Structure formats: structure tokens, C-alpha cells
Simulated scan of single mutants.
Amino acid sequence: MMSVKNTNSTSDFILLGLLVNSKFTGTVFAVILAIFVVAITANLVMIFLIHRDSHLHTPMYFLLSQLQLSIMDTLFICTTVPKLLVDMVSIQKTISFVACGIQIFLYLTMIGSEFFLLGLMAYDRYVAVCNPLRYPVLMNRRVCLLLAAGAWFGGSLDGFLLTPITMNVPYCGSRIIDHFFCEIPAVLKLACADTSLYETLMYICCVLMLLIPISIISASYSLILLTVHRMRSAEGRKKAFTTCSSHLTVVSIFYGAAFYTYVLPKSFHTPEQDKVVSAFYTIVTPMLNPLIYSLRNKDVMGAFKRIFAQSLFLNFRIALVV
């Protein structure tokens, strides 16, 4: 057993990648690179707008800027895409045992933190719609910091629990991972020991991590629906819908992909489907999130127009002086 562990710690894994022997590799590389650039740019622009414009200094945008956009989405896509792009143009597609463990920890922490964040953001939407007059009190800075700490703690706990167990499973024989990054289900297929107990525990852990935020989301939106139903003003209902629509869209996309990967039984999975779904929530979702929150939000678009206008005016004044 000791020799197996030593082999684990010194041997590299081989990542087959997103596509295997495909003539469309160049096209896919260009698309993924474009998505990566758009995702990073959109997140950074969103962060800049939220910190620069005083109209966006609210709890909702604090959560967006400090958690989901500035750290979670950016780190999430940076965990997998750079390595994927390098592998697509390299002959050697290896990843060291340590690097594989780091990748597992980072994506577990990011995805777990985003699970909790989206649930906590539903509470924010509940307060905004159902208790608008008390919103500044119920969602003060201290509460926002506690929500932030809670989301990060929940996500990192998942990473600290599952990563050491995964990396201490004995791996022997084949070192080829049929995936484009070290995702636990794909890595465990290489184990030369019975992992059924660990997979059961991981399944329970993932279900619980989904159930907790889903329960918060369900309770919050049930109360929101009751409040909206009692509203007599059509304008009030429209405003409530606008307030919640972006969050619901992101929740549906992110939780749908995660449910397929971590909750559905193995009989519903194929390696090709797993890679497509994983690519969606690790590559596409970090790009969609800031776009959804900006394009469907008048406050964000208004902040963009104000800062853009200020920038043009400043450049004009500088040109006149010169």
C-alpha cells in the first residue's frame, strides 16, 4: 500500500481533453478562448462598475462584486480553462498529482461557495421584495459580510473534506483521465480499490450541499410569490419580477448542470455527456452570469452609460488642454 501511495504522489495523470482526435480542435480552441476572454472582461467590468458607481453600493451588488463575480466566477474559469487551452495545442497533456489535487480543491471550493451564495442571494431578494422598508437594516454591511463568510466557509469545507480523500485513494495501472480537468468522478474511475463507500458519502455530501441552498431559495421565492400575489399594482409586480428574474435565471442554469453531474446516478452518465455538462458550468456559466446581471439590469446599464459618458467627457477635456 505504501508503494502505491508513493506512486500516486510522483506520477503524472494524462488528461484526454474535451475533444479526442477531432478535426475541429482549432475551431473549439478559438471558441473557448473567446469565451474565456469575454468572461474575464465581463467580470472585471462588472466589478469596476459596482465599485465606481455609488448607485450600485447596495447589498445585492456587494454580493455580486465581492463574491460571485470578482472571485468565484473568475477563479472558477481560471481553474480549468488555461490548462485546457494549453493541452489543446500541446502534445503532452499531463498534469502532476499535486496539480490535480489543487485543481480538485479549487473547483470544489468555487462550486460549493457558489451553491451557498446563490441560496443566500435568494434571501436578499426576499428582503428586497417582502420587507423593502427594512431592507437597509436587515441587509446591513455586517449581515453581508456574514453571508460572504458563510458562502466561502461552506465551499471551502467541501474542498477540504473531499480533496484529501480523493487524493489518498490508491491509483494504479492506467493514468489516463477521460476528461479535460481533474473532476472527482472522472479521477475515481482510475482507482484500483473499492471506492463505493466514498462515492456514496460524496453523493450524500453533494445532495446536502444542494438541498441547503435550494431550501433557502424555495422558501424565499414562495414568500415572494405570496407577496407579489397580494400586490394590487401591476407596476409593483413588474418591479418584483425584474428584481428576481436575473437571480432565477442564474440559479436555473447553474443548479441544473450541477444536479446532472453530482446527483443523477451513474447509469444516466456517459463520458461525452459529462464533459459537455462540465464544460458548460465551468466555462460558459462564468461568462453568462455577469452578462445576465448586466444586460437584464437597468441599474447596471445606467452605471455603464454614466461612467462611459464621464470617460468620454474627460478624454475630450484632456484633448482640448493638449
Rank of each mutant, 00 (worst) to 15 (best):
P59W: 03
V31D: 05
P82Q: 00
I50E: 05
I40D: 02
H55I: 05
F76V: 00
I71V: 15
L63C: 11
L56S: 03
Y61Q: 09
C78N: 11
H55W: 06
K83E: 04
H51L: 12
T79L: 03
L63R: 07
L84S: 06
I50P: 03
T41Q: 05
T80K: 03
L84C: 11
F62E: 02
V86W: 07
D53W: 12
I35A: 09
D87C: 09
I40M: 14
T58K: 08
A39S: 15
L63N: 11
V81N: 02
L63K: 07
C78W: 04
M72G: 11
F76P: 00
A42Y: 02
I35Q: 07
L63G: 13
M60D: 15
L64P: 00
H51Y: 15
P59M: 01
F36W: 10
S70V: 00
I47L: 14
L44R: 14
F29M: 04
I50V: 15
T79P: 01
F29C: 02
F36D: 05
A39M: 05
I32V: 15
V89T: 15
L33I: 02
L63I: 09
V37A: 14
L75M: 13
L49E: 01
I47E: 09
C78V: 04
S70C: 14
V37M: 12
L64F: 15
L49F: 11
I50F: 08
I50N: 01
Q66C: 06
F48T: 10
L49H: 09
T79A: 13
A39I: 04
A39N: 05
L85V: 03
F48Q: 12
V86F: 06
H51V: 03
L33E: 13
D53M: 04
F36Q: 09
T74M: 14
D73H: 14
I35Y: 10
I47D: 10
L69K: 00
L44A: 12
S65V: 00
V89Y: 07
I40P: 00
I47T: 10
V28Y: 06
I77L: 00
V86E: 11
F62R: 14
I71E: 06
L64K: 11
L64D: 08
